[in-house]
């Protein structure tokens, strides 16, 4: 459902994404892993049409994201990094706006909003302005917005960031419950999450894919069978916080 071919993205002379190719099928939950600045968010921004690729192609459900941007965007649900939402709206107003833009009317819109609200547990804050909500609720408003139109493709940038352990658990079960008939990409740097929800994990470092396989296959790469060790052995640590030996 998602086909990415030789994707490159440059910002001036800096190459954020340096040639990524991926295919994500229906039923797959792909976990996008990598250190900060590895190019996870940039890749997601290109899949959803927010940034244009410098090179390469992206096709979502058969729609090229550059040639048929609106068609592609209408089959994608996207939770951007930090879950931005209009602070002066209430969740209900915000979701109604999204429903209208997604072409849902009257009863269909109401049904979709009710379902998304129930799935993300927003009932108690529906009438409060988004700016007054806690980080966890804001994130869930973003989630509700992304799943509102029951999209076949779901892209979520750090969906559990800022949630407490119970909420994390709830979001993971939600993702698992939706995974059967969707293609899902989530980015995370919480390694346990990969094991908990992903059917496949891709580790990227400095804009390139360094590992691609099921969580079990990745674990097999390390003698200790720990995700942390796999992650550390495949990615480059941040130069500034690296502790040099003997210092």
């Amino acid at each position: 459902m998602i086909i990415i071919e030789d994707l490159v993205r440059r910002f001036g002379s800096f190459t954020a994404v340096g040639g990524i190719s991926l295919r994500v099928k229906k039923g797959e939950v792909l976990g996008f892993l990598g250190p900060n600045g590895a190019g996870k968010s940039t890749t997601m921004k290109m899949i959803t049409g927010f940034l244009a690729p410098s090179e390469g192609r992206i096709s979502v459900c058969g729609h090229d994201i550059v040639e048929e941007q609106l068609e592609a965007q209408s089959v994608i649900g996207y939770l951007p990094e930090g879950a931005p939402a209009y602070p002066d709206m209430t969740p209900v107003q915000f979701l109604s706006f999204i429903a209208r833009v997604r072409g849902l009317k009257d009863e269909a819109a109401q049904k979709a909003i009710d379902l998304a609200v129930a799935r993300t547990g927003l009932q108690s804050v529906l009438g409060q302005k988004i700016e007054t909500l806690s980080k966890g609720f804001k994130r869930r408003v973003g989630l509700a917005q992304a799943i509102l139109h029951d999209p076949p493709v779901l892209i979520m940038d750090e969906p559990t960031d800022g949630l407490d352990p119970n909420q994390k658990q709830a979001v993971r079960s939600l993702i698992r419950a939706m995974s059967a008939n969707k293609a899902i990409i989530i980015s995370t740097h919480i390694l346990e999450e990969v094991d908990a929800v992903c059917s496949r994990a891709v580790i990227i470092d400095k804009g390139k894919i360094v590992a691609d396989g099921t969580p079990a296959e990745l674990l097999a790469k390390s003698p200790t069978k720990r995700f942390d060790d796999v992650f550390r052995s495949l990615t480059t640590p941040d130069a500034e916080i690296r502790v040099e030996g003997g210092q």
Binding site: K45, G49, P84, A85, Y86
Partner: peptide, 14 residues
Amino acid sequence: KSGTIELLMTLPVP
């Protein structure tokens, strides 16, 4: 500034 542009521009709105 607030990042909602990313939301708006990834919705199917010309």
